[in-house]
Lab assay of single mutants.
Amino acid sequence: MDVFMKGLSKAKEGVVAAAEKTKQGVAEAAGKTKEGVLYVGSKTKEGVVHGVATVAEKTKEQVTNVGGAVVTGVTAVAQKTVEGAGSIAAATGFVKKDQLGKNEEGAPQEGILEDMPVDPDNEAYEMPSEEGYQDYEPEA
């Protein structure tokens, strides 16, 4: 019985440690998101679009440190934060509304985080759909 109880105690310690790591990862992701939003706020009209992409990228980098179902929630929060940063930029006159959601080359930025393969159960990952990809044929 002692062996059984000791095993359960060790398992509990492992769960607590994993929860603490997840909590730490979420806190880091939130900190990076805040950094990115402050970065966007300090940019001029020309830099705002690039700044919004930076927020998304920093958040995406930190999301990889967070495991399990938390990833889905962090990704949703990050996307809403990026959308909010863009709205703030438009409201303050840093950028025109028609410039939001495009990178410096004018290509749409939507789907940055949505296409990231995420499995809350950590069982399997699927690649994003290939609808947006084109076949590449090298020139002879």
Rank of each mutant, 00 (worst) to 15 (best):
D2W: 03
V3C: 06
V3L: 10
V3I: 06
F4G: 00
F4K: 02
F4V: 01
M5C: 00
M5Y: 02
M5R: 04
M5Q: 01
K6N: 05
G7Y: 02
L8C: 11
L8R: 01
S9R: 14
A11N: 01
A11Y: 08
A11W: 13
A11R: 01
A11L: 04
K12E: 01
K12T: 02
K12Q: 04
E13R: 13
E13I: 02
G14K: 11
G14C: 09
V15H: 01
V15M: 05
V15L: 13
V16G: 13
V16Y: 14
A17Q: 06
A17M: 03
A17L: 04
A17T: 03
A18W: 15
A18E: 05
A19V: 10
A19T: 11
K21G: 00
K21Y: 14
T22H: 05
T22Q: 01
T22P: 00
K23Y: 11
Q24W: 15
G25A: 15
G25S: 10
G25E: 06
V26T: 09
A27N: 04
A27W: 12
E28D: 08
E28A: 09
A29Y: 04
A29M: 11
A30Q: 03
A30S: 03
A30G: 02
A30L: 14
G31N: 15
K32S: 14
K32F: 03
K32G: 12
T33H: 00
T33Y: 08
T33F: 00
K34Q: 04
K34C: 02
E35Q: 08
E35F: 07
E35V: 08
V37P: 00
V37C: 01
L38A: 05
L38M: 15
Y39G: 07
G41Q: 06
G41T: 15
K43N: 00
K43R: 05
K43Q: 08
T44E: 00
T44C: 13
E46S: 06
E46K: 12
G47S: 12
G47P: 04
G47K: 08
V48C: 07
V48E: 00
V49L: 14
V49K: 14
H50T: 15
H50A: 08
H50R: 12
G51W: 10
G51M: 06
G51C: 03
G51S: 08
V52R: 14
A53N: 11
A53V: 15
T54L: 05
T54H: 01
V55D: 00
V55H: 00
A56Q: 05
A56L: 11
E57T: 08
E57W: 11
K58M: 11
T59Y: 14
T59V: 04
T59H: 00
T59W: 06
T59A: 01
E61C: 06
E61D: 15
Q62C: 12
Q62P: 00
V63T: 03
V63W: 09
V63Y: 09
T64M: 04
T64W: 07
T64G: 05
N65T: 02
V66Q: 01
G67Y: 14
G68H: 15
G68S: 15
G68W: 08
A69P: 00
V70W: 10
V70Q: 00
V71F: 11
V71I: 04
V71E: 01
V71Y: 14
T72A: 02
T72N: 07
G73V: 10
G73H: 11
G73I: 03
V74Y: 09
V74L: 11
V74Q: 00
V74A: 14
T75F: 05
A76R: 14
A76E: 05
A76T: 09
V77L: 10
A78P: 02
A78D: 03
A78Q: 03
A78M: 08
Q79A: 09
Q79P: 00
T81A: 01
T81C: 08
T81K: 01
V82K: 04
V82G: 01
E83S: 02
E83F: 02
E83N: 11
G84T: 11
G84D: 10
A85R: 11
S87D: 15
S87T: 07
I88M: 08
I88H: 04
A90S: 07
A90E: 05
A90K: 15
A91R: 09
A91I: 12
A91T: 13
A91V: 14
A91K: 05
T92E: 05
T92Q: 00
T92A: 08
G93I: 05
G93F: 10
V95W: 13
K96F: 07
K96N: 05
K97Y: 12
K97A: 01
K97S: 00
D98H: 14
Q99I: 06
Q99P: 05
Q99W: 07
L100N: 10
G101W: 13
G101K: 11
G101T: 03
K102A: 00
N103A: 05
N103G: 08
N103H: 06
N103K: 03
E104V: 15
E105L: 07
E105C: 13
E105S: 09
G106Q: 06
G106F: 09
A107H: 12
A107L: 05
A107G: 04
A107Q: 11
Q109P: 09
Q109E: 05
Q109S: 14
E110Q: 04
E110L: 11
E110W: 01
E110C: 08
E110V: 12
L113S: 05
L113C: 03
E114D: 12
D115P: 05
D115I: 09
M116G: 05
M116I: 14
P117T: 13
P117C: 09
P117A: 11
P117V: 11
V118A: 15
V118R: 14
V118I: 09
D119F: 15
D119T: 15
D119A: 12
P120I: 15
N122V: 06
N122P: 05
E123Y: 07
E123C: 01
A124F: 13
A124D: 06
A124Q: 11
Y125G: 14
Y125A: 09
Y125L: 06
E126D: 06
E126Y: 06
M127F: 12
M127S: 02
M127W: 10
P128A: 07
P128D: 11
S129I: 08
S129M: 09
S129Q: 09
E130K: 12
E130I: 06
G132T: 06
G132F: 07
G132L: 12
Y133V: 03
Y133E: 06
Y133T: 02
Q134Y: 05
Q134R: 04
D135L: 06
D135Y: 06
Y136V: 08
Y136Q: 08
Y136F: 08
E137Q: 03
E137L: 05
E137C: 09
E139M: 12
E139S: 13
E139R: 13
E139N: 11
A140H: 06
